[in-house]
Design a protein around this nucleic acid. Sequence first.
DNA 1: GATGCGTGGTC
DNA 2: TGACCAAGCAT
Length: 337
Amino acid sequence: MVQGASAALPWRASKDPYCIWLSEVILQQTRVEQGTAYWQRFVDRYPTLFDLAEASEDEVLRLWQGLGYYSRARNLRKAAQQVARLHGGRFPQDHALLKGLSGVGDYTAAAIGSIAFGLAEPVVDGNVYRVLSRVFGIDTPIDGSAGRVEFRALAANLLDRQAPGDHNQAVMELGALVCSPKSPKCGDCPLASKCIALRTDRIDQLPVKANRTKVRIRYFNYLHVEEAGCIHLRKRSGKDIWHGLYELPLLESDGALTKRRFAAVLANVHGTGWTVEHMVGPVKHILSHQHLQARFWRVRPPKGFMPPQDWEQVDMDRLEGHALPRLIERHLLASRT
DNA sequence: GATGCGTGGTC
DNA sequence: TGACCAAGCAT
């Protein structure tokens, strides 16, 4: 098996389902290099599942700040509460029950089951799809239902039922360290002699993905209202990006706004009498599925302005109590200097 | 089953 | 630069 990386993964030292679950959720769609520091932060702050279950959502989101896919953080706390209340604080040793936890799908349930409890279940993540599609020369798209069924069945057949946890981690590690998406190290690969993709020169064509995500462009106009060391923030909600995080009050527009057009929109939404001082931007912020073009407008409200209910006035020294998207965090950091 | 959800790194 | 990619999940 592939040696060398284990020492870099601190959660490997533990068979504690709580620590393993934490690491698996953090690593969903996230690189080990980025996730490791967050894992350490979470186990330090929440040594036990009950500590996490009792934490506030704001605090968990704040700890998660910068890691992305923030529903993971909200589900993390929810799942901790579910384990505490429904299962007496112990993770169930059962795939279906594990899958019943918020934020735990097929992959994570199989990872916890096999690594923590030794259950004979195959994990099928991006690494496994890549390794199996190449070794066996399978061009079934991995992002369709047929592919999911086919690769899962194959992974189940290959599984070492005596050591499912080690087997699963070995395949994933092979995918991460050797059978990488680009420039795989076929010269170092223990499966090179059996690899159909290598033999037929199709390494760069596998795995096959059918769906391509299309990008939406959005124009964000942020109101930077800062007076006497305080700034107005607003918590995002609804089915949109950054749910539960804080940002500056936002006016979204269908296109880029000039200062004149912005002033008109501002008066329309929040009343007349505002002073628009200057604009910072446009700042481009790339999400996997949206391209944001942000403009930060430094504005002063009219005398006697009553902020909307959902605006929160925050001392600039107390920002660390709020989870901020990278875009906002960077702007505030830059504007403070 | 298709779509939406972050961020950072790479080429 | 833009497109792709990373130990997925929920709806």
